[in-house]
């Protein structure tokens, strides 16, 4: 468990470092995910050594977004000022993206497994 957590945090740290050194606009945790994938493919990291900690974190991932969401309360006035275009734009666009992305993938990839 601890080993897995250390590895995951280590990859996140490496990702943050990489992003900063190269001045990339990509978050360190996303780079860390890519690095971990490469390490798994190269056999440097064994899946078993991170699965216990990783699965636990993934199981509760939704919870970790809650504090970020509560931060929205600071910006209610900002949204209220032009609420109609903001809300309609966000809602319409979210559904458009899902439809376009899913349809393109399914059309090009086919329905078969």
């Amino acid at each position: 468990m601890l080993q897995g957590l250390v590895l995951l945090l280590g990859f996140q740290f490496a990702g943050e470092l990489f992003a900063r050194l190269l001045d990339l606009p990509i978050p360190g945790n996303v780079i860390g995910m890519a690095m971990l994938l490469v390490a798994l493919a190269a056999g440097v990291v064994k899946q078993e050594s991170i699965s216990e900690a990783g699965e636990l974190l993934l199981k509760y991932m939704a919870l970790f977004f809650v504090p970020a969401g509560v931060g929205v309360m600071l910006y209610f006035e900002l949204i209220a000022r032009e609420w109609l275009p903001i809300i309609v734009g966000t809602v319409v666009s979210t559904f458009v993206v899902m439809a376009v992305t899913g349809w393109v993938e399914q059309l090009l990839g086919g329905d078969s497994d």
């Binding site: 945090l9 996140q12 978050p27 995910m33 971990l36 974190l57 993934l58 509760y60 970790f64």
Partner: peptide, 8 residues
Amino acid sequence: LLGPSVVA
């Protein structure tokens, strides 16, 4: 904890 979860 969101950071390491994204890595996971």
